[in-house]
Design a protein around this nucleic acid. Structure first.
Lengths: 339, 339
DNA sequence: TTGCACTGCGCAAGCGGTTGTTCTTATTTG
DNA sequence: CAAATAAGAACAACCGCTTGCGCAGTGCAA
């Protein structure tokens, strides 16, 4: 094909006006079956694709959505995000949207602002929310459609997330039922809703199973290796028989520290974690953990956003975002008793 | 601010024509200092941002570039890509471009085609090239500006990459000079240029150091854990004193296998690898490896693309893409002799 | 036969910018 | 001092597509 083929070309070739071509494509006006078919087949043959910019300019839509990511991801978050992203792409691909990647820094959302003020996107997906999220505030204020992938404390924000409380409840219950009565908990940033919800699940499981809760073996804000090691030292003095890590990165550090202390897993202490991340794939022993369906999270977030985008227009999408799934994967770290 | 502010608004408010406003912004026409300043300050105050779609439509530029990624990345590739991406973003951010993320599957580049035919991007960065790369072929054929991040065998393709041959040469030489004479090599896909180049560096280092090359301790195409373990068994029979893994994911598997065999690192065998990936951060012992400057790779790729994009227009960019850096990080796996 | 509703399609005005050309002044220059 | 020249700004077309409105033609009930 030599030149770019435009709607005018087609109109000329078909001996009709561009209006007719446009209407045929969008299916909006009244077009006779005959001309419609003629035009459609011509389009198919000549492989016409409307110019996205022109189209966008005409109806004030860009057909892009921004995905806002933080500057840094650790080895657990990154694959998690990547899989969610694939979920998002699944949806955008057949909704004919594209993804614009926007990076924000802790106190700097200039890139996001730029993308918004330049009208480069129709909506936004926040891939990670901070407790006090400038991005979310900005978007709320500007009335830009967006959804947050993962929990946030702000109920004004459209969000999708797994049920972390139930997940942790089930995991905890499972371990408690396996006669692991003194079960420690190590979690990350206390102000994160996720941390809070998992903590609640842990507590609730103790109540349900009528096992006393010992606040001395619950540690939150375990954000740095050094602190995790200190926690570990403390715990070793407390005669515990199990530990739930809220996060595989905590778990990794914990494991290597325990190994250096010659503590055996699961003989001395049982270990369970969250995310079932590949970072622990080759660990010996294999680690019991909760695996989320990351792609589904992405799909759900994206569907929700598309809903919002279309709702202002007309038909609410019918895609029912089901309950987000997770799975408790039981491995050696909580089961094997002899090797 | 209530309504979207457009160039017409500004023109009206300033009592000039939109031409004048446009010209003051682009700095192209002749505008008196007085009106220019008036307009510019008005723009600054009212925080005007030109509508990207309209601008793009007018001058046939989208101001976004596509980044093509594969469906899957492993735990070594993913962080590598992420850092390269950050490098790319550094450049695009102040060149006022945005990034469109496009995923391709092994034999399916429909998303890329869509993005191109819809005129959604000005250029493309291929984040991973396959030996027989449909994406590259397509782009070449369509004469779309693009660069490949990482080597490819096709010299028609604009590409940026580290000097893997020299890197491996230096690493090998270093180890050989430390009296590790029987040094095995385990690499990935033989058809990859990267693998080939590293292999060459390994060979060259042996020649330079006048150490006989033993093909029996060189293994390529080590793509699956099971095969890596077999290689490992073989090597253990060959009385080697060191192994270079071309890739941290190979290394990870190797290490866990060696551990299960009670082989001590570095006492029994020295180990070195590539990428210095976080996946090995907590490994004991720490692993000697080559660390590339991933962000710089991204920056270089992006600059090169922008060069191509502008070159057809006018001024060649002056950003000199220096030699891509890498660093040999020496850790316990090749040094510690007693603990 | 006239009136009316409906079908099928085109006109032309946008969407928000850019740019070649023209027009009007101001400034040089012989 | 007239004429040539340059400076500053405006006109209007265009980028490719959408859409409100209007107009001709057909079918049918009154």
């Amino acid at each position: 094909m030599s030149k770019k083929i435009t709607i005018d070309n087609i109109a000329a070739a078909m001996g009709v006006s561009k209006t007719t071509v446009s209407r045929t494509i969008s299916g909006k006006g009244r077009i006779s079956a005959k001309t419609r078919d003629r035009i459609l087949s011509y389009i198919a043959e000549n492989n016409y694709n409307p110019h996205a910019l022109a189209k966008g300019l005409a109806n004030s839509k860009t057909y892009n959505i921004a995905i806002v990511i933080p500057e840094e991801y650790n080895l657990v978050e990154l694959p998690f995000f990547q899989k969610s992203l694939m979920g998002i792409l699944e949806i955008t691909e057949d909704a004919d949207y594209d993804i614009l990647l926007v990076m924000v820094k802790p106190n700097d959302i200039t890139q996001l602002i730029k993308v918004i003020t330049n009208n480069k996107v129709d909506g936004v997906i926040l891939a990670r929310t901070y407790q006090k999220d400038m991005a979310a505030e900005y978007l709320l204020e500007q009335k830009i459609p967006f959804v947050s992938m993962g929990s946030s404390n702000n109920e004004l924000i459209a969000q999708v997330d797994n049920d972390h409380q139930t997940a942790c409840y089930e995991l905890t219950s499972l371990l408690l039922s396996q006669d692991i009565k003194r079960l420690a908990l190590i979690g990350g940033d206390e102000s994160h809703v996720v941390t809070e919800n998992r903590y609640r699940g842990y507590v609730r499981a103790h109540q349900t199973n009528i096992i006393p809760l010992d606040q001395d073996i619950i540690y939150l804000n375990a954000l740095y290796p050094a602190y995790i090691q200190r926690i570990c030292d403390d715990l070793l003095k407390s005669r515990i028989d199990g530990i739930i890590c809220m996060d595989d990165s905590i778990c990794t550090i914990l494991l290597s520290y325990l190994k250096s202390k010659k503590i055996l897993i699961p003989e001395d202490i049982k270990i369970a974690s969250f995310y079932h991340s590949a970072i622990l794939d080759h660990n010996i022993p294999s680690i019991t953990s909760i695996k989320f369906d990351e792609a589904e999270l992405g799909r759900a977030a994206c569907c929700k956003l598309l809903d919002i985008l279309n709702e202002s227009a007309k038909t609410p999408m019918e895609k029912p975002v089901g309950q987000l799934r997770y799975e408790i994967i039981i491995r050696e770290s909580t089961t094997k008793t002899s090797s």
